[in-house]
């Protein structure tokens, strides 16, 4: 285990796992209580268009993904406010179009791109030191914004209409939230891969919810679980030469199943006692 830390790529990947875990727990908890898991999925997949554009034009795929994620967040923000009844359609269109656009742009790019897979399913080799600084900056940004406006985000997530009547700028906060989701997605693409992002958004807060019914505690436990899944997943994917994102998600999913079964058992045994 210790010898793993001798490799710089592994140290970077593990540090990235911790940084991702934090943003996952914070943003993911709000994603779950707002029932916006597929919204986050749409943003993640649309980001692929930006990765394709970056390949074609030769700039950083990270930057491309960030631009496309923020753009699709904004688009979804408009969709929520204008076409709320058909939001699922908008998400679906955005999801598939982003993937299609990315694929075509990569087809058009000269050369052979074998590292495309790492954007889809994550790779432990992908995280560089500058990436880490970028992730750290995003973590600080996310924590500052959610920390400062926690009561506003809570009120809007719980009851949007009431939040409007107490004078909150609900639309602005909705956009802010979607941009944070976009940024968290971009952070996760390196290690988890954009296809698997929604699992890491939704599973840790859902497990946390079996212990507590306070959003604050869900955020803390959720971050803890996300960090544990990332670390375990990275270590296992190293030893067995697997895709890091897929391994992380499988560990998360198995843990989730175990917790659900335990919860179910506990519930049944309580019923038998009564």
């Amino acid at each position: 285990m210790v010898d793993l830390l001798n490799y710089e790529f592994m140290r970077n990947a593990l540090a990235a796992g911790i940084l991702i875990g934090i943003s996952c727990g914070v943003v993911g908890s709000f994603v779950v209580v707002n029932r916006a898991v597929f919204l986050a999925g749409g943003i993640a997949h649309a980001a692929y268009g930006g990765i394709g554009l970056a390949f074609l034009c030769g700039f950083s795929p990270f930057l491309g993904a960030t631009l496309f994620a923020l753009f699709s967040s904004t688009l979804l923000g408009v969709a929520i406010q204008r076409w709320d009844q058909r939001l699922d359609t908008v998400i679906g269109v955005l999801w598939a179009t982003g993937m299609a656009l990315g694929t075509i742009l990569i087809d058009l790019s000269p050369g052979y791109h074998k590292d495309v897979m790492s954007y889809l399913f994550g790779s432990i080799l992908a995280v560089s030191r500058p990436d880490l600084y970028f992730m750290l900056a995003l973590d600080i940004l996310i924590l500052t914004i959610i920390g400062t406006y926690y009561k506003e985000f809570l009120a809007i997530s719980f009851d949007t209409e009431f939040a409007m009547t107490v004078g909150l700028p609900v639309k602005l906060f909705q956009f802010l939230f979607l941009w944070l989701v976009g940024l968290a997605v971009v952070m996760m693409i390196r290690v988890v891969g954009l296809i698997l992002v929604i699992a890491l958004f939704s599973i840790p807060p859902n497990i946390a919810e079996t212990f507590t019914s306070s959003l604050k505690t869900i955020i803390i436990y959720g971050s803890f679980f996300a960090i544990v899944f990332c670390t375990l997943g990275l270590v296992i994917s190293y030893y067995f030469n697997l895709s890091s994102g897929a391994t992380i998600v499988m560990i998360a999913a198995i843990t989730y199943l175990v917790f659900l079964s335990l919860k179910d058992l506990a519930y049944k045994s309580r019923q038998i006692q009564q």
Binding site: K151, L154, D159, F162, G167, T212
Partner: peptide
Amino acid sequence: PNPNFPVSVLDVVLMGRIS
């Protein structure tokens, strides 16, 4: 609309204090 929302009674009432 979201009856399983993880929030306490006091937190809900505090939302009335936002204004």
